[in-house]
């Protein structure tokens, strides 16, 4: 069984994003970029499934600029076997990403595609669900536990009021939530080894997919800043302020 894991290069989660002065987007030039944290969890899960013998190969794919190669090398240092970069200068929307991934799924024939539940830059939380729809596959989103048994995959999902279990026929889509696992750090020898693993580059145009965006960005603005308030000296003073000044209790 083959597993495909799409990984996205995003602004590192430790960086406070800054809106560009002209309001056209968020500044990404010269900013530290890393693998989307949810995608690290997805890669880890796929590698663990292979280590357990439930899968034979883990293929990682990124759709993006040339530098997304670094993200793919990181995934291979974590244990993925090979990588595909679909090269584009655009920032494709989830619909376009899902269409590109569909063509790769048709080519590679994985039994499982494990994605992150959301990318922390655009926070869309959509790509996995959209790919599942396009393929007509089952979807186990926001997964906190994954078991592959007898041609099915059983998934525990984090939902609004608790946890839910669903069972899906393979092939299927999984999207990883925070509690699925704790991703490993890539060791130096594995980082070296990853440099020799195969990385194929495909120009997005060669896939014949309509990637035209459907959303136009009218503007990107900073939200209203909250100002720091005051420090109070005691619980009594706090309750007094909440009652008489803020009038919230």
């Amino acid at each position: 069984m083959k597993i495909l894991v799409p990984v996205k290069r995003v602004v590192d989660y430790n960086i406070k994003p800054r809106v560009k002065a002209d309001g056209s987007g968020v500044e990404t030039a010269g900013v530290k970029m890393s693998m989307n944290p949810f995608d690290e969890i997805a890669v880890e899960e796929a590698v663990r499934l292979r280590e357990k013998g439930a899968a034979s190969e883990v293929v990682v794919v990124s759709i993006g600029v040339q530098q997304a190669q670094d993200t793919l090398r990181t995934a291979m240092a974590m244990g993925a076997d090979r990588a595909i970069l679909v090269l584009t200068d655009e920032s494709p929307e989830p619909l376009a990403v899902a269409k590109v991934l569909k063509t790769l799924v048709e080519k590679e024939g994985p039994s499982l595609v494990v994605l992150g539940k959301q990318a922390i830059d655009d926070d869309m939380n959509a790509t996995g669900q959209m790919l599942a729809g396009l393929l007509g596959w089952g979807q186990g989103t926001f997964a906190s536990k994954v078991d592959v048994v007898d041609g099915r995959v059983n998934v525990s999902r984090e939902i609004d009021g608790g946890t839910e279990q669903v069972s899906l026929a393979l092939p299927a889509i999984i999207t990883a939530d925070l509690r699925l696992n704790e991703p490993r750090y890539a060791s130096l020898p594995n980082i070296m080894k990853a440099k020799k693993k195969p990385l194929e580059t495909i120009p997005a145009a060669d896939l014949g997919v309509d990637m035209a965006p459907r959303l136009t960005i009218v503007s990107v603005a900073e939200p209203a800043e909250r100002k720091a308030g005051i420090k109070v000296g005691s619980a009594a003073e706090l309750v007094e302020k909440l009652r008489n000044e803020a009038k919230v209790i």
Partner: peptide, 23 residues
């Protein structure tokens, strides 16, 4: 924009060839 909406609507949107607008 809860667990159900985020699970179901993007799938429906893909089938309608629409880019969803979350949150």
């Amino acid at each position: 924009a809860g667990a159900t909406g985020k699970n179901v609507l993007p799938r429906a949107a893909a089938l309608l060839d629409v880019q969803p607008i979350p949150d």
